[in-house]
Design a protein around this nucleic acid. Structure first.
Lengths: 101, 101
DNA sequence: TTGTTTTATCGTAATATTGCAATATAGCAA
DNA sequence: TTGCTATATTGCAATATTACGATAAAACAA
């Protein structure tokens, strides 16, 4: 019915699935790659770099933020996003653990 | 419009996103975990193990097979699925490379 | 104050996903 | 052949996702 049965799975299974889902769009992969490269954590540039509209980029950023992979730092009128390094390492370990099962 | 703009991203970005997307459902995580544990690569049991209908399980298996994470081995009326170990290692490396960027 | 810039949100249309009942298909047994 | 078992496919309804134009909100400049 278009709705995922999260209730019948473990917290860990849902968490891993949510992370994977957030990474399950090429635009979000591109955004993560861009943020990984630029430690300066620029945001508005993403709209220039990606051939997507500003609302669409904003939407993708929201998805990535919702799972904690990135953080938004407000700086005046601008919001500069950056990788949440702590979460990033945690997710890396989570992925490693899964693929080493 | 519900349709992902794959054309504006690289093959690598789309490939990684497709893999993540396939992993982006708790039922598919559960299926992968089950197949990782049972080297005997049973299939029909998945329908008993998971509180999902047979068509739904079959659908999830199809998604995992489409990205190559699992293989289906026909054995009479039964089809026993198993992890594609070669692909599994490749994906693990792909993920590692991404998270080590 | 009024403008400008930047980002977020709203509203909407098109498409995708999820889940299941019903049915089809394939292999085997009798 | 018929019947049984196991899996795949079809069809459908409900919901989710994607994308973008329009607009709102927030901070700053003049």
């Amino acid at each position: 019915m278009g709705v995922t049965r999260t209730d019948i799975f473990s917290t860990e299974q849902n968490a891993l699935a949510d992370l994977a889902k957030a990474m399950g769009h090429p635009a979000r992969i591109a955004i993560l790659e861009y943020l990984l490269k630029s430690d300066t954590c620029i945001c508005g540039d993403l709209v220039d770099v990606l051939p997507l509209s500003q609302p669409t980029v904003s939407q993708h950023l929201k998805v990535l933020k919702s799972v904690g992979l990135i953080k938004g730092c407000v700086e005046g009128t601008r919001v500069s996003y950056c990788i949440d390094r702590e979460k990033w390492l945690a997710v890396r370990n989570q992925m490693n653990a899964f693929f080493d099962l």
